[in-house]
Each structure stands twice: as C-alpha cells, then as structure tokens.
Design a protein around this nucleic acid. Structure first.
Lengths: 361, 361
DNA sequence: AGCGTCCGCGCAACCGATTGCACAAGCCAC
DNA sequence: GTGGCTTGTGCAATCGGTTGCGCGGACGCT
C-alpha cells in the first residue's frame, strides 16, 4: 500500500538497487540480448522487489509509440457496437495494446473531440465505427495509415472507388438484405415494406440494398415506413401506420427495431407473423430468443472488431494498410417469416395476451 | 494530410511562429491570465495555422496528471456492463477525461494485466466493475483514493464493515431480490426456486438475499437450480430440471438468464407463466419486450457508471474518496408473474424499493 | 607478447511539454 | 533621478524513460 509520502518508484531506483546504470536496467527489463543473463536477473529482481511500474508516458514520449489504440463508436450500450468493442478490446489486449473508447452519439462535435483526444494521446491506431463525420475531414487530421473505418456509412468508401480504398472494413450488409428479400419472395411474400430510422446514414444503404433486390424480382417498389429516431424504444407510431395498411412483410433496419416493432404490434389487431411477417438484421441474441424467433441476418460484429485491430497493426513495409475487406453475413431463418401459402390454421404463436386459463390441450 | 516527411508540429514550432518562447506559448494556450491578450491571440493563431496538437504524454509526464480514467469490466458485449460503460464514458468525456476500457472476462490473470496497463499509463482513476480479484490485492497495487469498486462481489466491501468503506458503489440488489420475493409471495406463489450460474460470486449474494426474504415470509427454504456458466446461451439443461419437478416460480440471477430460460422452456410441456412464473433481474431492454413481459428489477446501470466517475473525481482535500453509495433499484412487474390465485393482491407496480444511502447503518 | 574481436555496459542526449524563479520594462510616487 | 510595484516573458530545470555511440576488459589466435 503506497503512502502519499513515499515517492513513486522510478527506473533509477531499480538501477541503483541492481547496481547498474539506468540504461542497462531499461534494456534488461525488456530482455535485450546484449545484457548478460546475471545482470538481467538482478534488474528483474530489483524491479520486482521495489514494485516498479514503468511510466508509459515517459516511455512513449521517447519511443514514439504509445501502444494505445482508439475506438470511436456511437453507443456503448448498443448490442452491436458492444460486440464490436468487445472484439476490438480482446484483440488489442492480446497484442499488448490498451484501448481508448469514446462514443460519438451521432454528434459531429463529440466525434471531433474524440478524435482530438486520440491524437493528443498519440494513439498508434484509430478505428472509426459508424462515424458521422466526413472521412475527408478525418483524413485531413489523421494519417491515412493510422485509421480504419468500420462499417462506414459513406458510399464513397465502399466498393467501386478507384483506387480501391484501404483501411475500410465492413460486413456485407447489402448481401444480407438481398438474402432477406430473396427469402421472403421465395416464401410467397409480395408487398414488402422497409422500416428504418431514416436519418442514420447507413439506413439509406440498407434500404437501397433491399430496394434493389426487390426490383430484381420484379416486385412493386418497396414501401418505406419511418420508424423515427427513437423507434428502438417506442415503435408504437410505426405500428399504427402498419396496422392501417399492413404490408405482407416488414424488413427492418436492425433487430433492435424489429423487436421493438414486434412488441408494439402486440397492441394492434395484427397477428405476427400470421398477418404480417417481419425480418430483422444483426443477429443479436434477443432476436434469437424472441417469440416468434426473428428471421434475421447474423453479422460478425465481434469479428469486425477483431479484424479492425489486425488491419491497423498489419501495415506493411510500405507503411500502408491492408486493402479493404468485406466480411460475409448469414441469413438465419426464424419463425417470424413462415411460408406464406402454407398458413391454413390460425396462428397461435403471435397471440397478444398470455393465457390465464387452466390447463389446455 | 500529413506526409511522412513532415515532422510532427511541436510547441517550439508554435512559439517560433508566434515570436515567443515555449513557456509563453504553453501558458497562452491554456489562457494563463499572466499572458497579455495580444500575445495569447498570436499564439492561438499560430497553433491553429500549424495544426498543433499537444502531446498528452509529454504533458502528463511533467504535470503528473494524465486525464485518463480506467474502467475494468467483465464483458463489453454484456448489456448491463455495456450500460455501465456508456454512463462511465459519457461522464468522463463531459469532464475532459479519456477512458481506457479493458475486459477481465472473469479471468484473474487478465484482470491483473488490465490493472498493470492502467498503472503504467498512470490513470488518474480506476473503476473496477465486478472484478474477481481480491480487493486486498488490488489495494496493494493501487492507492485507495484512486480506485472505485462498482458492484463488488465481496461481502467485505459491502455494508457492515468498520470503518465504513469508501469508494464502493453498488445498486441495492438485495432489496431488489427482496422485492421480487415479496411480489411473488403476495401473488400467491409458495414454492420458489432460484436459478443462477453458481460460480459467479455475485450469484451467492443475490441468492442469499432472495433466500433471506423467503425465510422472512416463513416459506420453505428456496430450492436452488444450477444454470451453469453458459446458461445464458443454453439453458436447456436447467429447463429439463425444471420440467421434471416444477416449482411455482423461478427467481433468476439476471434477465439474460431469465430470457434464455423462457426460450428453453418453450421446448418443455410447461406453460410460462401458467405453470411456472419467472422473474429476472437488471431491467435490460429485451426483458421489457419479451413475451411474456418479464417481471424484473430495473437497475440504474448507466447511473452507476456516471456516479463512479463522479466519485473518482470528488476526492476531498483530505484526498479521500466520498463514502460508499448504494443506488436504489425498482421492481417492474411484467406478465411473467401473474396473480396465482383468485385472491387479488395489492399492486406494487413501479414502487420504489426503500434503500439506504451511504454506508451508515 | 601482441593484436583484433566481441561482449557487456554506461554516458549523455533526447522525446515534448510544464513551471519555479528571475528579470526587463513601464508606471507611479517621492 | 531613484526606489517600489505591477505586468509580461523567458531561462532552464524537470518529468521518466529510451537509445546512439563509445569504451574497457576478456578472450582467441598467431
């Protein structure tokens, strides 16, 4: 237990106790082969005895490497971002990097401040997950070989750019939505609708991907239902709009929204999935446990976080990041999108109020 | 866009451009009143023009303050921990602190390494959420006025210690479980069972709190059902055990487990809540959206994170942390615990659970 | 014995900011 | 004109490690 009066143990103390110079002590502690084995042992022992803890600030000041990685994301409490963060932290820790995490909350000003913090602390690498700022602004502040974009909302950073961008990592969301649409079409759904928050820019991409798929099947253009920004909490407005004019199936921006809708639609006369099928996106755990089980798309969120670290730390000798990557996604069919023609008996699964009757067959 | 050839801009460059010394430039940038207004403006302009970004390592080396806070938790992808992290990050950012987040994953060795990282980076404060290490070991490494324990699993750090501990922050879980038991008793449930992972140490506390409450109502001792460590993913084993000999109601360690059980019990002949009622704990979003809606206890997780920051930064002039705090929780009655008999019991929906603040008895 | 190597280690500069202290003006009063 | 003050700046030490370079001694070889 360190008393206020005791000064912090510094390298000089270790060196003194070990009977060497600071230089030797420093090298010994990092197992420099130029230092003899006995000396190394002596320094080790001294450090241990004194409870020496090197000062990272001093070290990185001289070494020009901080072993710090910065991660910027929207919301830590969001399951998807939480998984990205978990994968990121795990991979970083495994490689001996500490992780700065800051949240942007869709606020450009907060993002700017977060970036400033990363830069002041001289993070060795920065990962921007779903940032709302302009990548050009970002690149004006951060060297291109030090920043990786994960799930960028910017079409410009996606495919088709010339030259192929580096340092961009994302999951194949368009393919996921295409798979969802295909699944629905194969199951006999025709009038599809997309529900999303609108303002989030990745929403436009997902919606467009679904719309493209719908068009490719020759179906009528997909209806768009605005869930609003807080549709994740209160989806009742969207639920009423759906009740008024129910489509055959709903394609949701993400699982969080789908689950909120599932909940809100209980208050309507609609039976789910009997009257309206519903599909989500992300593959978060509650989606797999909901009732009915949600048809959704598993996104490798943890893997995204992990790969982001690997990309950052894999700059080749040309000092450039590996080229961009797209991680595959996987459609998971649940009970929320049953074959449409097969429905003959009334669905019980989607009933609104739990039964309080006695035992029933 | 910074080219590799351009050297990083340092304070000396700013000073040169502004025509002052480094000392003056440094003071000007932090609005030292001793520096004349024109000089301050000149330095400001020079810094802006050069795109100067101060080096946090150099600054904190000399200033002996890093403006870094460390947060150690079990799993970032866990909803509860995610909310704690979110509150923590938000409060820290608002006060100009950067946040190191590391995960322990219930592994003492990882926790040790995380603590080492915090210490090497000289974090101004450290928050340990649900760490599995011995607090004594922690205090041997970290000054007592620099670390806050959130939701400690250690009875020794809870109430009753003498002198009252400082730097301990938790929610009133015992009161929450007591409220759940009371609710179940009032609704006519008699044979209660507790389901938990067993090995997690906070499990013992929760179980004990529930058991105490059960005893206080003169009911038979509560049965214990082991969910296993990965009961959050696969609760089928526990579900089979429940089906074999169903209690009246299940009190679960947390919502995650309750939801998994809810899901697993669908594969049994039991109807929920008709045959067996079920209650969770934590108040995570999916619990409020599940079907049936889960009776649970809202825990102020975000607030825990926020308060942790405030406690860390509120050390008085005696250099000591504020005394420990217990945040109140709130029972939320859902559909998973309907009245069991015809006799109607008083509704206590949304009633706040009486809770004590501070460590004073 | 003489000479070239190699090994192990220390000197001192350096990373980039902060800060105690001193000093130079400018101003007033005597 | 000189002393006492205030005001605005600069010098240089300092924080705690890292690292280029050089030096002394042990060792091998002729």
């Amino acid at each position: 237990m360190r008393r206020p009066s005791e000064r912090r143990v510094v390298l000089a103390d270790v060196a003194r106790l070990a009977g060497t110079s600071e230089a030797t002590a420093s090298r010994a502690l990092k197992d420099d082969p130029r230092i003899g084995v006995p000396t190394r042992a002596a320094v080790r022992a001294a450090a241990l005895k004194l409870g020496y803890v090197p000062n990272a600030a001093a070290r990185s000041l001289r070494a020009r490497r901080t072993h710090i990685l910065g991660l910027l994301l929207d919301e830590l409490s969001d399951p998807v971002h939480g998984k990205v963060a978990a994968g990121f932290e795990e991979a970083a820790a495994a490689r001996g990097y500490a992780v700065f995490i800051m949240t942007g909350l869709h606020d450009p000003e907060r993002e700017r401040r977060a970036l400033t913090a990363f830069l002041e602390h001289r993070a060795d690498g920065i990962v921007l997950a779903s940032c709302v700022s302009d990548p050009a602004d970002v690149h004006a502040r951060v060297a291109a070989d030090r920043v990786v974009f994960v799930q960028p909302d910017y079409p410009a950073l996606a495919d088709g750019a010339e030259p192929p961008p580096r340092g961009v990592l994302r999951s194949d969301d368009p393919a996921g939505f295409a798979a969802t649409v295909r699944h629905l079409v194969e199951r006999g759904y025709e009038r599809l609708a997309y529900v999303g928050p609108g303002v989030v820019s990745s929403d436009a991409l997902r919606r467009a991907a679904a719309a493209d798929a719908v068009a490719s099947y020759g179906l009528a253009p997909m209806r768009y239902i605005d869930s609003g920004l807080d549709g994740w909490r209160d989806a009742s407005t969207a639920a009423r709009a759906i009740e008024e004019d129910p489509p055959d199936a709903l394609i949701c921006y993400d699982d969080k929204l789908a689950l909120a809708l599932l909940d809100a639609l209980r208050a309507t006369s609609l039976r789910i999935p009997g009257d309206v099928a519903i599909a989500g996106f992300d593959g978060i755990l509650p989606a797999h446990q909901s009732r009915p089980r949600l048809t959704t798309v598993d996104v490798p969120s943890v893997e995204l976080g992990r790969r982001a670290v690997e990309m950052l730390l894999a700059t080749g000798r040309d000092g450039r990041l590996p080229s961009s990557e797209v991680l595959p996604v996987r459609l998971v069919v649940g009970e929320s999108t049953p074959p449409r023609r097969a429905r003959s008996a009334p669905e019980i699964v989607g009933q609104a109020v739990p039964s309080r009757r006695g035992a029933s067959a």
